[in-house]
């Protein structure tokens, strides 16, 4: 079997040494999904659970994820908290400032659909009204385990997109992933 055929299946280890050969696309996919830097975008209560997910017990650093304050260095924006009319233009501008490829995780009921504030006149019913959302993690606030599941599902999506790109297939449709409160995935 030639090197090219073996590369189609994944990594090729050169015998005897410490050299691995891989396709560029595979390396990029692995790097992108394993090192997602998120924009510190905690707005309210869900931000505290996001901080707890990043802290000692539910360590997010083991997934390669840590928080960058500037959108120019971030891949994923976790919108954690309710979005008010006063804040919405800033969210939109920050999303536009993030370089491609970028993803959005809507954390909590408020960012997903407005939460309990259905008759509030200043709350936008979901951040997907003005930015495209990839993963919805429901909960009020969602447990750290659910947020981590959302992040893992997003990593799977990044992997699938790159596999499609590598095999010359059309990009899979970016349907939103929904993580419900019990951890069931839609």
């Amino acid at each position: 079997m030639g090197v090219k055929e073996r590369l189609e299946k994944g990594l090729v280890k050169v015998p005897g040494g410490t050299i691995l050969i891989a396709k560029m696309a595979d390396l990029m996919a692995w790097a992108r999904k394993s090192s997602m830097w998120s924009l510190t975008f905690g707005l309210s209560c869900c931000a505290i659970e996001m901080m707890a997910t990043a802290a000692s017990r539910y360590d997010l650093d083991r997934f390669g994820m840590f928080f960058r304050a500037t959108p120019r260095q971030a891949d994923v924006m976790i919108v954690a908290g309710w979005v008010s009319v006063k804040m919405a233009p800033f969210i939109k501008r920050l999303y536009e400032q993030m370089p491609e490829p970028k993803y959005v995780i809507a954390m909590g009921g408020c960012a997903s659909a407005g939460g309990p504030y259905r008759d509030s006149i200043t709350i936008v019913k979901g951040v997907d009204q003005f930015v495209p959302v990839d993963v919805y993690v429901y909960g009020c606030p969602p447990r750290p385990e659910n947020l981590i599941l959302g992040i893992l599902k997003l990593q799977e999506r990044i992997q699938r997109e790159h596999e499609a790109e590598r095999n010359g297939l059309p990009k899979p449709v970016r349907e939103p992933i929904i993580i419900t409160e019990t951890g069931a995935t839609g």
Binding site: L43, S44, G81, W82, S84, K86, M87, F90, Y117, D119, S120, I121, T122, I123
Partner: peptide, 14 residues
């Protein structure tokens, strides 16, 4: 301030 204003006091009246 006011980026998180929901008008809770008014919602509570209903």
């Amino acid at each position: 301030i006011g980026y998180l204003h929901r008008g809770l006091e008014k919602m509570m009246e209903r």
